[in-house]
Amino acid sequence: MVKPQIWVWRGEFTGNIKMQNEDNWKLLEDSYTSFILEYAQMANETKADIFCIGTELETFVDNRPEYWFDLINKVKSVYQGKLTYAANWNEFDRTPFWGELDYVGIDAYFPVSQSKTPTMEECLEGWKSHKKGITETQKTYKKPILFTEFGYRSVDYSGKRPWISDRDMDQVNLEAQNNTTQALFETFWDEDWFAGGFVWKWFINHDEVGGEENFMFTPQNKPTEAIIRRHYSLN
C-alpha cells in the first residue's frame, strides 16, 4: 500500500486541519489534489496493490465531503489498483465515501484497557463495543475492513490511549505490547471480512531499531514481533 501522509507543524493532529474561509479551502484542495495525484500515478507505475487517498483528515472530510468524492474519481483516472482511506478510529463510522472505495480503512488505535499492564482478557473485553461498530459499518457498505495502521507501544498503559507517542512515557512494558497485540489478532484475524493490516511502525533498518529497551511503537526485535510473524505466516 502506498499511503501518503501530511505531517503538521509542531506535531499537531492532522484531523484538526480546518480552513477559515472559502479561498483557503480551495487553496488546500488544489494543493492536496496535486499531492495525491502525483503519488497515485507513482503507485500505478509501480503496480502497488493498494493506494490510500488520505490519512486521518477528519475535519477536512467532515467539512468538504463533495471534494473527496471528486478526488476519488480523479484518482481512479490515473490509478488502476484498489483504493482505501485511513480513517482514524473515532472517525470511520461517519466517513461518507466508503461506497466508492475497495476497503474501509481504519487506523485502529481504539482504547481497550485502562490498566498499567493490560491482560489479554481485559483487551478482548475492551474490543467488544468497538468491534460491534466496525461490523455495522462493514455490513452497511459490504466492503472488507483493512487496518491501515495498527500497533501498540511497549510501554505502561499501552491500551489506554494507543495513539499517544509522547516520549515522556518511557516505562518499558513488553508484556503490555504483547497482550494488546495478541488480543487484536484474536478479535479480528479469523473474520472473513477482515483484510488484514499494516503494522505501525516498521523500519527498513531492522537490525538497528527496536529492541527490548525500546518503549515506542515498533515491534521489531521485541517479543511482539514473533506474535505478528506467527499470524502473518499462517495467512
Results as ranks from 00 to 15, higher is better:
Arg167Ala: 14
Phe92Lys: 00
Glu225Cys: 06
Gly210Pro: 02
Asp192Asn: 12
Phe217Asp: 05
Trp9Val: 13
Pro219Met: 02
Lys82Leu: 15
Met19Cys: 15
Leu146Tyr: 08
Leu124Gly: 09
Ser34Val: 08
Asp93Trp: 02
Thr148Ser: 11
Ile72Asn: 04
Asn214Gln: 07
Pro144Asn: 07
Gln138His: 14
Tyr39Gly: 03
Ala87Cys: 13
Phe150Gln: 03
Ile17Val: 09
Thr55Ala: 14
Glu100Ser: 12
Trp89Gln: 03
Ile6Pro: 01
Trp9Tyr: 15
Ile164Arg: 11
Asp190Ser: 11
Ile145Cys: 10
Ala195Lys: 02
Asp156Phe: 06
Asn173Val: 02
Arg153Ala: 11
Trp9Ser: 14
Glu29Ala: 12
Gly105His: 06
Thr84Ile: 07
Thr135Ser: 14
Val112Trp: 03
Gly81His: 02
Glu66Tyr: 09
Asn214Trp: 11
Ile134Thr: 08
Asp168Arg: 13
Glu225Phe: 03
Glu58Gly: 08
Gly15Lys: 00
Val112Glu: 08
Asp170Gln: 07
Ile53Thr: 09
Tyr157Trp: 10
Leu101Asn: 02
Glu100Lys: 07
Glu191Ser: 12
Pro4Asp: 08
Asn179Tyr: 00
Ile17Glu: 05
Phe60Arg: 01
Asn44Cys: 09
Lys47Ile: 05
Gly151Lys: 00
Asn63Ser: 12
Gly197Cys: 04
Gly196Ile: 02
Gly197Arg: 00
Thr46Ser: 13
Thr218Cys: 06
Lys160Ile: 02
Tyr85Met: 09
Val155Arg: 04
Glu38Ser: 13
Arg153Leu: 09
Leu71Gln: 02
Leu27Cys: 12
Val104Asn: 07
Asp62Tyr: 12
Met19Tyr: 10
Ala86Leu: 00
Arg161Pro: 00
Gln80Val: 01
Asp107Gly: 12
Asn179Met: 02
Thr135Phe: 08
